[in-house]
Design a protein around this nucleic acid. Structure first.
Lengths: 130, 130
DNA sequence: AGTGATCTACGAAGTATTTCGTAATTGGTG
DNA sequence: CACCAATTACGAAATACTTCGTAGATCACT
């Protein structure tokens, strides 16, 4: 069976994707305005990054008058999984348990999140393969 | 209070560190032999990477006859946490819950691991701040 | 039609990382 | 001591990614 392409957006591309995933289709200007905060970014830097992401198939776009409106062409969950797989192997030698324990052990997760995860983990049960 | 330096080893450095964390102090040759598998690596590439990691303070070394024996100078858990923090923000917008659910949802975790995590999560309880 | 603002395209410099080749040094062995 | 193999040091090319400036097109408005 054919696997989906293993898109691995770079850090700069990921910043763009986060905007599009969260807010839907956007122009370069809209994204530039959202990003140009404490750390200023030049307009054409954002433009170029989006053009590259478009060339790589991460984004689609439509002409709207003189400008382009971009849309994420890849699913957030799929990309997160791709990136996570690599990160898991590189940093935790593939140990999901190691990763999760470190993620929860650093005090960044709220009580709320922990409670939700406990529920999630309790559901996640008998349905196992390998 | 002074924070520990925020070491962020590169991918190549991390490969070296994984060896040292797992197997203790090693020479360049020993690491080269361990890595030179399906994807061949040249000896001096490994050497150079280790010299850079040494310069950056990630490794220490001792002379043993004509050769050097290297040791990890940074703690595995601390490095994993540093890298995880950045990855979490970039890829999951800082949502630990999102990360953990994706990590567990992809079917890579064994029943065994899931059971252990459930135990861990149940212990992880009242001791919360923020 | 002319002017100015906004936009896209894109080359290319800048930065970070990885990879490799060459030279010099060291240690053991005949 | 001479030689060979193993080793370190290091410059520099190769690769990947990011950033920016310039040029040219397009649109709105006068």
């Amino acid at each position: 069976m054919a696997s989906p392409p293993n898109f691995q957006p770079t850090a700069a591309e990921l910043v763009i994707l986060q905007q599009l995933w969260a807010r839907g289709p956007l122009s370069v200007r809209e994204i530039h305005e959202a990003l140009d905060g404490d750390k200023p970014v030049v307009y054409t830097t954002v433009l170029k990054t989006m053009q590259i992401a478009f060339d790589r198939g991460l984004l689609t776009r439509e002409s709207a008058g003189r400008k382009h409106v971009y849309t994420a062409a890849v699913e957030k969950h799929a990309i997160q999984e791709n990136l996570l797989d690599g990160f898991l192997d590189r940093t935790f030698g593939g140990s999901t348990k190691g990763l999760v324990m470190r993620a929860l052990g650093n005090g960044r997760a709220s009580k709320q999140e922990i409670a939700e995860l406990r529920t999630f983990l309790n559901q996640l049960d008998t349905e196992d393969d390998d």
